[in-house]
Computed example of a mutant assay.
Amino acid sequence: HHQKLMNCKHRRYSVVHLQSYLHGGTSSLLSTIPTLVVFPVYKTVFRQQIHNSTVHRAVGQLYKEGPVKLYRGVVPPLLMRTLNGTLLFGLQDTLLRQTSLTSQTVIPTSALPALAGFGAGLVEAVVFTPFERVQNVLQNGQNDHQLPTLRSILVRLRSQRLALGYYRAFMPIAARNALGSSLYFGLKGPACSAVAGQGLPPVASSFVSGTLTSMAISLALYPLSVLVANMQAHVGGETKGVMACWRMLWESWQQSVALLYRGASLVILRSCITWGITTAIYDRQQKHSG
Score class of each variant (00 low, 15 high):
residue 282 Y to T: 05
residue 204 A to C: 09
residue 240 K to Q: 10
residue 97 R to N: 11
residue 100 S to P: 13
residue 66 G to L: 11
residue 160 Q to T: 06
residue 174 A to L: 15
residue 84 N to D: 05
residue 59 V to R: 00
residue 14 S to T: 10
residue 14 S to G: 12
residue 48 Q to C: 14
residue 104 Q to T: 15
residue 237 G to F: 04
residue 131 F to A: 12
residue 210 G to I: 02
residue 229 A to M: 09
residue 175 A to Y: 03
residue 176 R to G: 01
residue 61 Q to F: 03
residue 116 A to K: 14
residue 119 G to L: 15
residue 161 R to P: 02
residue 180 G to L: 04
residue 70 L to A: 00
residue 77 P to T: 11
residue 259 L to V: 12
residue 183 L to I: 09
residue 162 L to R: 04
residue 283 D to C: 13
residue 46 F to H: 10
residue 136 N to P: 02
residue 66 G to S: 08
residue 196 A to F: 01
residue 12 R to A: 15
residue 157 L to E: 03
residue 66 G to W: 14
residue 135 Q to D: 07
residue 287 K to W: 06
residue 195 V to Q: 05
residue 21 Y to N: 08
residue 236 G to H: 07
residue 40 P to Y: 01
residue 166 Y to P: 07
residue 134 V to R: 00
residue 96 L to C: 06
residue 175 A to M: 14
residue 61 Q to L: 04
residue 84 N to R: 03
residue 60 G to D: 00
residue 255 Q to M: 13
residue 142 Q to Y: 04
residue 169 A to K: 05
residue 97 R to K: 11
residue 69 K to C: 03
residue 12 R to G: 10
residue 17 H to W: 07
residue 53 S to V: 02
residue 231 M to Q: 09
residue 5 L to V: 00
residue 278 T to F: 01
residue 25 G to K: 06
residue 159 S to R: 06
residue 271 S to W: 02
residue 181 S to F: 11
residue 197 G to F: 00
residue 194 A to H: 02
residue 272 C to W: 04
residue 222 Y to D: 12
residue 222 Y to N: 14
residue 212 L to H: 07
residue 211 T to Y: 01
residue 255 Q to F: 14
residue 148 P to D: 01
residue 129 T to G: 08
residue 279 T to L: 00
residue 167 Y to Q: 09
residue 26 T to C: 04
residue 7 N to V: 08
residue 87 L to T: 11
residue 231 M to Y: 06
residue 135 Q to L: 11
residue 202 P to I: 04
residue 262 R to G: 15
residue 49 Q to S: 12
residue 194 A to C: 02
residue 200 L to D: 00
residue 122 L to S: 14
residue 78 L to A: 04
residue 8 C to I: 14
residue 64 K to Y: 05
residue 112 L to A: 08
residue 126 V to I: 15
residue 72 R to N: 06
residue 110 S to D: 08
residue 218 S to G: 12
residue 279 T to P: 00
residue 59 V to G: 01
residue 23 H to L: 04
residue 103 S to I: 07
residue 250 W to M: 15
residue 140 N to I: 01
residue 29 L to D: 03
residue 212 L to D: 03
residue 147 L to F: 10
residue 107 I to E: 03
residue 286 Q to C: 11
residue 30 L to N: 03
residue 166 Y to H: 14
residue 66 G to P: 05
residue 54 T to M: 07
residue 32 T to L: 10
residue 105 T to H: 05
residue 281 I to T: 00
residue 26 T to A: 05
residue 133 R to Q: 15
residue 103 S to A: 09
residue 138 L to V: 05
residue 261 Y to I: 14
residue 136 N to D: 13
residue 268 I to Q: 11
residue 70 L to V: 00
residue 169 A to F: 08
residue 64 K to L: 05
residue 261 Y to D: 13
residue 34 P to E: 06
residue 15 V to E: 09
residue 79 L to W: 10
residue 37 V to C: 07
residue 282 Y to C: 08
